[in-house]
């Protein structure tokens, strides 16, 4: 009886979240210019690096790659809240609980960023050479990194949207907060360039996963307060 009730509850909330994610994906496809704008952004950034340093050595390759990822993420995720007009947000507020809304945004941004991570990895390998010894491991770290970055920036975009859609504010808040995650990612991905195993790798993965869980939990708890107006 109780189980059936919980099951029905989960099912209804899942259907709402899926509907919201579908709506975001559909909007994205209808406004293709934004999507292709970011693709062009990745392409031109990597191409500029290629013009400047040709094929960098592995440490610099790693650093440049993660900086490109950071800026792609800021651009891709900032849009997700900034594109919503005030009236439309109010409409959503009347339809669903804010918690469903933030979960949908998180899922949508994770999907978006995972796709862009792969694109920028391909771009980097194409233009900057391939210093990777364990490419599959690096691919995994890149997707994981894209997910971690997008989770944090989704919440920050929600905060920045409150401050009269101020995109500069997102950089001010975001870059200090993202620094520990980027530091961890750069350390973890260093293993992909070396043939020997790095000590303390499981601990770092655990810490990264812990930070992701922390960000998700904070977003779920705090977003309803952010939306209350």
């Amino acid at each position: 009886m109780v189980l059936a009730f919980i099951f029905a509850l989960v099912k209804s909330s899942l259907s709402r979240i899926i509907a919201l994610v579908k709506k975001d994906l559909l909007l994205e496809w209808r406004q293709r210019h934004a999507l292709f704008g970011i693709l062009l952004y990745v392409f031109s950034t990597v191409f500029v690096i290629n013009l400047m340093v040709k094929e960098p050595e592995e440490n610099i390759w790693n650093a440049l790659f993660w900086v490109v990822q950071l800026f792609v993420c800021v651009n891709a995720v900032a849009k997700s809240f900034l594109q919503e007009s005030r009236g439309r947000l109010l409409y959503f507020y009347s339809l669903v609980h804010p918690r469903y809304f933030i979960v949908a945004k998180l899922i949508y941004n994770v999907l978006l960023m995972a796709a862009f991570s792969v694109v920028s990895l391909v771009c980097c390998i194409f233009f900057l050479g391939n210093p990777l010894i364990h490419p599959l491991y690096f691919l995994g770290v890149v997707v994981l990194g894209g997910v971690s970055l997008s989770l944090l920036f989704t919440m920050l975009a929600a905060i920045a949207a409150q401050a009269s859609h101020n995109a500069a504010l997102m950089a001010i808040m975001g870059f200090p907060l993202i620094m520990p995650i980027l530091m961890l990612l750069a350390n973890i991905s260093r293993s992909a360039f070396a043939p020997v195993a790095q000590p303390g790798l499981p601990g770092m993965f655990l810490l990264l996963g812990g930070m992701d869980v922390l960000v998700i939990a904070l977003a779920l708890v705090l977003f309803p307060y952010l939306w209350k107006e």
């Binding site: 919440m155 409150q162 520990p180 705090l222």
Partner: peptide, 22 residues
Amino acid sequence: ARVSAIYNVFAFALLIPLTYII
């Protein structure tokens, strides 16, 4: 007040791993 309170919770949640765990 509302937005900075939310950011403050984030900041404190990162302060602990940064200065205590890592």
